[in-house]
């Protein structure tokens, strides 16, 4: 079922900008048009590009936003997971809870808010 929905109607997650648009929905309650426009603006791409994995691979690597953890797609110099989420928080200008938690746990060395 998840495969069917993802292929039929999904944005594509981290292969595209699905996770980024999702963050604006989840944390800011933005509807899809507003969320896509916001993310596209931050990335300097068109809203259509957000769903294009060919475009988004390069864009995500440029900004360090993570991607598929596969040596034929990204390499050891690419940010992924928690590393990428630091860059996503800065790019989208939103607090990401686990990033803030990470900063707190390394005892302010990365500029934690608390």
């Amino acid at each position: 079922m998840s495969i069917a929905h993802g292929v039929a109607s999904g944005m594509g997650g981290i292969r595209t900008a699905g996770d980024l648009v999702a963050r604006m929905q989840l944390t800011r309650g933005m509807r899809i048009k507003e969320a896509k426009a916001y993310v596209a603006g931050k990335l300097g791409v068109s809203e259509r590009d957000l769903s294009d994995p060919v475009v988004m691979l390069d864009v995500r690597r440029e900004y360090g936003l993570g991607g598929l953890y596969d040596s034929e797609i990204t390499d050891t110099n690419d940010a992924w997971a928690i590393q990428a989420k630091f860059n996503i928080a800065e790019l989208l200008d939103i607090p990401i809870n686990c990033v803030e938690s990470f900063k707190t746990l390394v005892r302010g060395k990365l500029g934690a808010k608390s």
Partner: peptide, 18 residues
């Protein structure tokens, strides 16, 4: 056998139960 939305018209899949 399968159908889908138009290219570029995808929406967010909040996969509850993943």
């Amino acid at each position: 056998r399968f159908t889908a939305v138009d290219m570029g018209e995808g929406v967010i899949i909040s996969a509850d139960g993943s």
